[in-house]
Nucleic acid binder design. Structure first.
Length: 247
DNA sequence: ACGTATGTTATCCT
DNA sequence: TAGGATAACATACG
């Protein structure tokens, strides 16, 4: 569920319901982080997303859903797991499970910079370059997971982007040529949209070139190891992927 | 059947 | 005190 493109899929599914600006007729769920009364009988203006966050925008506040690692949702269905937050409209119902729910006060635009959402039409390559230059000693594998820079990028995207741009995860930003850095940023956005397309087709895993692979596309051995400050799984072809080091 | 994992954060420890 | 390690969440997949 988690990475940015998966949130777009949810947003698209809700758009397909043609809800317009629906009024919340019932609020269910065992959520403890928000006051459910706040939503009852209120009108939803829009459903948005930022990175891995799904946003339900009301007049004066926004409900933020984060699915973390295990979160799921069902539209016009329920399951046995206790629902965390369930919203019922005139015709339809959306149920969220195992997720983190928060309420953001005021205008949603005051909470988010849409330029750093990898799936946004406002995504800004130059801003990403600027932010990367501010953390020169970070490893690129950590930087790609930094939600303040690459909102929506997760571990799959990270691994595939580094393989496709032929960069070793333990290259430090200051050692990567600027042209290569820009290529990584561009590919992060490009691969995220491929991810979206393939996920919709149910063929995402077929297109993995390094993530959870034993051999890369050139039939080289792929190693799997927790690398960087974030200690997330990195799948690396040490033949195809270059580790940039100080001159 | 079991081990692993698309994520983040609070808390405990050094 | 800054940082790192750990646990927690609950489910699907191979």
């Amino acid at each position: 569920m988690p990475e940015g493109p998966s949130i777009i899929i949810l947003k698209d599914l809700i758009a397909d319901l043609h809800l317009g600006k629906p009024k919340v007729l019932e609020v269910a769920g065992n959520v403890t982080t928000i006051d459910k009364e706040r939503l009852l009988h209120q009108k939803i203006n829009s459903f948005k997303s930022w990175g891995k966050h799904f946003l339900i925008c009301f007049d004066d506040f926004t409900i933020r859903i984060h699915f973390m690692l295990f979160g799921t949702y069902l539209i016009n269905e329920t399951k046995k797991t206790p629902v965390k937050l369930g919203l019922t409209f005139k015709q339809d119902q959306i149920n969220f499970y195992t997720c983190k729910v928060d309420l953001l006060e005021g205008d949603i635009n005051d909470h988010y910079d849409w330029r750093s959402d990898i799936m946004s039409e406002h995504w800004d390559n130059k801003l990403a370059v600027k932010k990367l230059k501010e953390i020169p000693s970070s490893y690129i594998c950590d930087a790609l997971l930094d939600q303040d820079i690459f909102g929506g990028v997760g571990n799959i995207i990270k691994n595939e982007v580094l393989y496709r741009t032929k960069v070793h995860p333990l290259s430090k930003i200051e050692d990567i040529p600027i042209a290569k850095l820009k290529a990584i940023i561009k590919e992060a956005q490009h691969y995220s949209f491929d991810f979206l397309k393939w996920k919709k087709e149910n063929t995402l895993s077929k297109h993995w070139e390094v993530y959870q692979q034993k051999k890369c596309t050139k039939d080289h051995q792929v190693t799997k190891k927790e690398l960087g400050k974030t200690k997330r799984q990195c799948y690396v072809c040490t033949i195809c992927q270059k580790k940039y080091t100080p001159k």
